[in-house]
């Protein structure tokens, strides 16, 4: 099972982020990628042909895990899910830029 390892691990504060209206529970220190995968969400975006894509390298190289993250000014901008730490009440969207073009 996809799961958070708990036998030897204690985590930071429990917080929650929001994915297109759906709350996702998580912990301070986790990356967006970790949170999505922990909730069994593997499609992080769609490519130009509409096919799903998910994280590959988990170290900031492949740019496959780009999701829309709400910025302080209210706009959404794409960020690497594997490199971006969650913050309480963060709002994200699965990027459909290419699909809606």
């Amino acid at each position: 099972m996809t799961h958070r390892m708990n036998n030897h691990t204690s985590r930071g504060r429990a917080i929650s982020i929001e994915l297109e209206g759906r709350p996702l529970s998580c912990f301070e220190g986790e990356t967006i990628a970790t949170v999505l995968i922990s909730h069994n969400i593997l499609t992080f975006r769609h490519d130009k042909s509409g096919k799903p894509r998910g994280p590959v390298c988990n170290m900031g190289v492949c740019y496959e895990c780009m999701v829309d993250v709400k910025q302080p000014n209210g706009d959404f901008a794409r960020r690497r899910a594997c490199m971006t730490l969650v913050a309480d009440a963060m709002s994200i969207r699965i990027n459909n830029v290419e699909k809606t073009r």
């Binding site: 099972m1 799961h3 922990s38 998910g54 988990n58």
Partner: peptide
């Protein structure tokens, strides 16, 4: 995924 990516999830983010 890459094996390195999987490993980073396990050892850093502590998830499988």
């Amino acid at each position: 995924m890459s094996a390195g990516g999987v490993q980073a999830f396990v050892k850093s983010q502590q998830i499988v």
